[in-house]
C-alpha cells in the first residue's frame, strides 16, 4: 500500500494559496531557468530578426480610412488590426514588431562596443596598474558620478538625434561600468597563486590575460551585459520619447509613446501596448540576467 494519494486529489487543480509559496521560491531561491522570461526574450529576438516577414503590415503603411482603430477584441475593433491602429491608421502590432528591431539593435550594438572598450580599459588599469590605473579610475569615477540621462542629453545636444548617435550615447554612458567591474576582477585574480606560478613558469603576459584573467572575468561581464539590455532599452525609449532619440521614419517603442501622448483621451491602446512591450522585454532580460548571476555565483544572491 504505497499509493496513499487518491487519484482525484492528484487531478484537482492546486489552490492559489498552495501555488504562492512555490512561486515565491521560484522567484527568489531557485536556480531553475526562468522559462517565461527566456521564452519572451526569444520571441523579441525573433521579431527583431524576422520582423518584416512576420508582421501583417509594413511598419509605415497608413490606412487613412481606419485611423485610431481600437484592438480587434473590442466593439469597434476590426480584425486585420489585432492591436488597433495609430493616428495615421498604421497597424500597432506591425509597428511593435518593427520597434523590437531598433530597440534590440541599438542596445546590442552599444553593449557590445561598450563591453569591449570597458573590458580593455579595465584590463589595462587592473593588470598594468601605475599611473594608467590612476587615470582610468579617475575617468571611470567622473563618468559614474553624474546622472546618466544628463550626460546623454548633453551628448545628444552636441551630436544631434538619430540611431547612430543614440548608440554612441549609450556607449559613452555604459563603458565605465565594465571598466570598473573588469578592473576589480583582474585585481582579485592577479594575486592568486596559480597566476603567480604561471608567471614563474615563464608564461607571457598576453597569454596569462587570455588564459587566466579573461575567463575568470567573463561570467561577470556577461551578467552585466544582460542586465544592461534592459537599462539600454529604457534609456533609448526615454530619449526617443523626448524627441531626442530615434527619428521617424524609423520606429521605436519610445517614439510610439511620444505620438500616443496626443491621443490619450480617446486611444488608450496607442499608449498601452508599446509600454507593455518595453516592460515585458526589460523584465525578461533582467530576470534572465539575475538567473545567470545566481547560477554563476550563488553567494552574490541575497
Amino acid at each position: 500500500m504505497t499509493e496513499t494519494t487518491p487519484p482525484a486529489a492528484k487531478a484537482s487543480r492546486p489552490s492559489f494559496a498552495a501555488i504562492m509559496p512555490r512561486l515565491a521560491r521560484a522567484l527568489t531561491h531557485d536556480s531553475r531557468p526562468p522559462l517565461m522570461a527566456l521564452g519572451f526574450c526569444a520571441l523579441v529576438i525573433v521579431c527583431a530578426v524576422f520582423g518584416e516577414s512576420i508582421a501583417p503590415f509594413a511598419k509605415d503603411q497608413a490606412h487613412f480610412t481606419s485611423t485610431l482603430m481600437p484592438p480587434a477584441w473590442t466593439e469597434q475593433g476590426n480584425w486585420p488590426f489585432i492591436l488597433g491602429t495609430d493616428h495615421l491608421g498604421r497597424d500597432m502590432l506591425s509597428r511593435l514588431i518593427a520597434g523590437a528591431r531598433i530597440s534590440l539593435m541599438t542596445a546590442g550594438a552599444a553593449i557590445f562596443v561598450a563591453g569591449i572598450l570597458g573590458t580593455l580599459l579595465g584590463l589595462i588599469a587592473g593588470y598594468v596598474g601605475g599611473w594608467l590605473d590612476i587615470v582610468i579610475s579617475r575617468l571611470v569615477d567622473a563618468f559614474l558620478a553624474l546622472p546618466f540621462i544628463l550626460m546623454a542629453l548633453a551628448l545628444v545636444a552636441a551630436l544631434g538625434a538619430g540611431t547612430a548617435n543614440i548608440i554612441l550615447v549609450m556607449i559613452v554612458t555604459n563603458w565605465a561600468r565594465y571598466a570598473r567591474l573588469v578592473r576589480s576582477e583582474v585585481m582579485s585574480v592577479k594575486k592568486l597563486d596559480y597566476v603567480t606560478l604561471a608567471r614563474v613558469a615563464g608564461v607571457s603576459h598576453p597569454l596569462i590575460i587570455l588564459r587566466h584573467i579573461i575567463p575568470n572575468a567573463m561570467q561577470s561581464i556577461l551578467v552585466l551585459a544582460l542586465l544592461d539590455v534592459g537599462r539600454s532599452i529604457i534609456l533609448e525609449s526615454s530619449l526617443s520619447f523626448l524627441g531626442l532619440g530615434i527619428q521617424p521614419p524609423d520606429v521605436s517603442w519610445g517614439l510610439m509613446l511620444a505620438d500616443a501622448r496626443s491621443y490619450l483621451m480617446f486611444a488608450w491602446w496607442t499608449a498601452a501596448f508599446p509600454g507593455l512591450a518595453i516592460v515585458a522585454t526589460v523584465m525578461s532580460f533582467n530576470s534572465t540576467g539575475d538567473w545567470l548571476k545566481r547560477r554563476f555565483d550563488p553567494r552574490a544572491f541575497l
Binding site: A17, M20, P21, L23, A24, R25, L27, T28, G230, I234, S237, S238, F241, G254, L257, A260, R261, L264, A271, P274, G275, I278, V279, V282, M283, N286, S287
Partner: peptide, 24 residues
C-alpha cells in the same frame, strides 16, 4: 511567503517600468 512574493514582484516590475509610460 505571499508577502515575500509580492515584494519581489513589485520590485522587479519597478525596475522595468519606464517612468514616462507609468505617467501616461
Amino acid at each position: 511567503r505571499v508577502v515575500d512574493f509580492t515584494v519581489n514582484l513589485v520590485a522587479s516590475i519597478g525596475q522595468a517600468v519606464p517612468s514616462f509610460w507609468l505617467g501616461l
